[in-house]
Amino acid sequence: MRLETAQLRLHTGICEGMPDLEPVLLDRAKRLPGLHRVALGRNLPGSWGAGDYTLDLQFKPAPPGAPADASGLAAALDDIATVDHVAYRAIAGGTRADQLHDGVWRTLMFRVRPEAPPWQMHALEQDLLRMPAYMPGIRNWRLARVLSPGPWTHVWQQEFAGADDLLGEYLMHPFHWGRVDRWFDPEFPEWTVEAISHAFCPLATSLIDGHNHKEETTP
């Protein structure tokens, strides 16, 4: 499957003009060719560097050799929102709660500094993937590298049972501040990440587990 995620920033005044906005957004997304599954969530207070909504898309496999293209959604939503959109390939992940319902979906898009040596990027990736071992509140997780052109290089996604697990254990954990934060802080010699977008929204059912199971095709 081809995976894509997007941050949607609504145009000014669009909510007043479209009271049934979320069904409209979903309807537009469902028209994209080859779509298999779509999920939309309104970002919660505390998100930053992000949009108003997080949209996740799962497509049927593209033909071999086809380039990653994240332009179709931007065109479909041009009169409603600006779209910060990436296609990506998962490099690692895991699940603890394959039947998670009514949780919280967190998406961190980030950009590795072009000057950073390869060993720093790989060390950063490994530290991110070590976080679930220290934080049981991370129920499911996935780290991916971006394939499409644009400002982002990685997507780091997690699923939680509730926002307290993200805002409490995850963001305040000693492993986060003592180990992971050095890759994101320009005051550290290991500074690797120069920009981030942090968003979290309600999650009806697990998206990470769903990518590993047969799903009903979106009409």
Rank of each mutant, 00 (worst) to 15 (best):
174 P>N: 04
161 A>F: 12
194 E>C: 09
142 R>W: 06
18 M>Q: 10
64 P>M: 08
44 L>M: 15
191 W>D: 07
120 Q>P: 00
200 F>Q: 02
196 I>P: 08
122 H>M: 09
129 L>N: 06
27 D>N: 10
44 L>D: 11
198 H>Q: 12
58 Q>F: 08
30 K>D: 13
65 G>A: 10
104 V>R: 06
42 R>K: 13
95 T>M: 06
205 T>S: 09
93 G>D: 00
70 A>E: 08
108 L>S: 07
118 P>K: 00
118 P>I: 05
63 P>V: 14
86 V>T: 11
113 R>Q: 05
33 P>I: 00
13 G>Y: 06
84 D>C: 03
117 P>C: 07
69 D>S: 04
110 F>W: 08
198 H>S: 10
125 E>R: 07
215 E>H: 14
133 A>S: 12
55 L>F: 03
170 Y>H: 13
188 F>S: 15
192 T>K: 01
157 Q>A: 12
71 S>F: 06
108 L>C: 11
165 D>K: 08
171 L>V: 11
48 W>R: 13
167 L>S: 08
14 I>M: 02
155 V>E: 07
128 L>M: 10
156 W>G: 09
148 S>Q: 13
90 A>Y: 05
149 P>L: 15
178 G>T: 01
179 R>E: 11
11 H>R: 01
191 W>R: 05
183 W>V: 02
161 A>Q: 09
21 L>M: 03
171 L>S: 06
28 R>K: 07
78 D>T: 13
193 V>F: 01
161 A>W: 07
171 L>I: 09
16 E>F: 11
195 A>H: 10
117 P>I: 08
7 Q>N: 12
160 F>S: 04
